[in-house]
């Protein structure tokens, strides 16, 4: 599976964003993972070549961060269940167990059909929205088992599944490309602000509370 010239060009495009090329390594690994479904030896070698590093240095970085898969291909969709305290105890544990049972995989594994990777994940910075699940790293907030089963049903049926704060999911590899910093054209398109983010604003409006008026100062 050769890495295309286009991906090489995108790697160089990432390198151009920084005063020093090596800064592009973390995004580049996302990009290569997006291209190849995991970080391959070939991917490590390409990074080493472009950034003038040893493959040991590249591997050292790739194995440090949890989002890179170095041992096997990831599934079509990545399902992450937050099991840190606020999400896990409030429902995430049960959701994970239900998913694990339904998909017949345990933490970090890919379903036999290659459709799903299931992973216990750490805090997603959305504790207000617990329990949080991610599908292809998009937010699925305040989830429960039923809602999650519905999401899986739809994904299995190939139907559109829209994140609670974010776009319709597009597959894990597409998400990895977005994370790498390659424009997916969706930046302003999705509904990323929900009622929980507006909880305080709505309360303030209900109660007629505002910040002090600058004119008074």
């Amino acid at each position: 599976m050769a890495i295309s010239e286009q991906v090489r060009a995108e790697c160089r495009q990432l390198m151009d964003r920084y005063p020093q090329d090596r800064s592009a390594l973390v995004p580049m690994l996302h990009l290569l993972q997006s291209e190849q479904g995991m970080v391959t030896a070939e991917g490590l070698e390409l990074c080493a070549e472009l950034l003038d590093l040893s493959t040991a240095e590249v591997r050292a970085v790739a194995t440090f961060y949890t989002m890179y898969r170095l041992r096997s291909q990831g599934g079509e969709h990545h399902i992450g269940v937050c099991v840190n305290t606020a999400c896990g105890l409030l429902g995430g544990d049960a959701i994970f167990d239900a998913l694990s049972k339904r998909l017949s995989v345990s933490n970090g594994e890919v379903t036999a059909d290659g459709r799903f990777t299931l992973e216990r994940i750490e805090c997603q910075a959305a504790c207000t929205h617990s329990p949080v699940v991610t599908v292809d790293w998009e937010y699925f907030d305040q989830m429960d088992i039923d809602k999650m089963m519905d999401v899986i049903d739809k994904l299995e049926a190939g139907e559109e599944v829209v994140a609670t704060r974010g776009p319709a999911v597009r597959g894990w590899r597409a998400a990895e490309k977005t994370i790498a910093g390659i424009d997916d054209g969706l930046g302003y398109k999705s509904d990323a602000i929900d009622s929980l983010m507006l909880a305080g604003l709505n309360q303030a409006k209900e109660r007629g509370e505002t910040a002090p008026d600058p004119k008074d100062f």
Binding site: Y65, E138, I179, G181, L186, G187, A192
Partner: peptide, 24 residues
């Protein structure tokens, strides 16, 4: 003359939105 916003990797929505906002 050069600033960076370092966003954790697991959150594509704020990442794509920040990219779009910077372009804007």
């Amino acid at each position: 003359e050069h600033a960076f916003v370092y966003i954790r990797g697991e959150v594509p929505e704020p990442i794509r939105r920040m990219h779009a906002a910077v372009a804007d």
